[in-house]
Design a protein around this nucleic acid. Sequence first.
DNA 1: GTATGTGGTAATCGACTGATTACTTGACGC
DNA 2: GCGTCAAGTAATCAGTCGATTACCACATAC
Lengths: 197, 197
Amino acid sequence: MEQKPDRISAPARREQILEAAARVFGELGYAGATTDKVARAAGISQPYVVRLFGTKDQLFVEVLERTGERVLRAFDEAIEASDDAATVQARVGAAYVELVQTDRGVLLSLMQGFILGHDPHIGPVARRGFMRIYDRLRTVMEPEEAMRFIAQGMLINTLIASGLMAEFQQGQNVHELLACAFGDKLGLVLDGMAADR
Amino acid sequence: MEQKPDRISAPARREQILEAAARVFGELGYAGATTDKVARAAGISQPYVVRLFGTKDQLFVEVLERTGERVLRAFDEAIEASDDAATVQARVGAAYVELVQTDRGVLLSLMQGFILGHDPHIGPVARRGFMRIYDRLRTVMEPEEAMRFIAQGMLINTLIASGLMAEFQQGQNVHELLACAFGDKLGLVLDGMAADR
DNA sequence: GTATGTGGTAATCGACTGATTACTTGACGC
DNA sequence: GCGTCAAGTAATCAGTCGATTACCACATAC
């Protein structure tokens, strides 16, 4: 509840803004989000957001790059942690679900970027990020495996973004689909969703 | 090139607008699209779009419902056409890819709706449309099959929306992923993409 | 103390957008 | 001919948003 105008260094403030922006962009999409909403989510004024990032475009691009690297890092750690080649797929899958649970905005921002491929600034960054993730998966999976893995990831993103996760109790098939998509991690994720309500 | 103000009946005009809106919303997203862009794409003035649909919200909702039913109809036809239970999955998959090829805006509008689940008007419609498609798949597939199927559909949507289809020649892995996701239908789809350039 | 640089905001501007209003044009019944 | 209704538009309004400008507060150096 501090309302003191606590001054932080510009780089630290950038981090705060990027984190808030990931949530806002993830929820509202690029066009639907405003620099003012990002600013309020970060606890500062709108002009300062623009000054630190130059443009709404550039802010979103930086969010995209940041989130893409976050996914890559999580995958790398999961890959490194699994010495057995047979367990690597389960580990990487678990890493993705964990990322979903702890930082929903990350995945949703990525998703928002993917479906803006037509944009001359955002499109190239989104495509490159997507392919970097696929390439990383291919270092430990066959093409068919990697395709199915990333497909399931897109489904998970869609389930979260559409708000179907919060309707898991409505309709038998909703719960069935969620259970099928998340496997034994479903309970975990549902708890995570309920937590930040 | 006709610039005569050809008058059509209001219901027919609504169809034109809905078709144009599916393309515009699919390309730019809900917030990114404007009623004026839809109007120009349909060859009429912006106020008339608003008058026929009341609200941008309602126009998008109607597009969503329309496109959802289009997918359902395509699936139903594919299911009906396949007497053998073993071939039904391939047939439904082919129906989806064909839908992608002939009417890209349909799938992209759906996708745009899915990731706007937070919106109080759009969210419920999108979720209901999504689950109706899943339910239909479940009449001919096991849960695991249906989940994988719809996951691959989400991947295909993402690949198209991100613009990766147009970059199939850049990077070996891009082509590999596309080939893996579309199977033997890849050539067909790429031709379809190149056609409406 | 005063100059200087850094973190930050209030006020505002111009462009855009969804919606409204008032108007025009033409077909059809009588 | 004339009233009426449907199809459609030009003009415009009110709100929003990204960006700019001009300013403030406070530290630290000298």
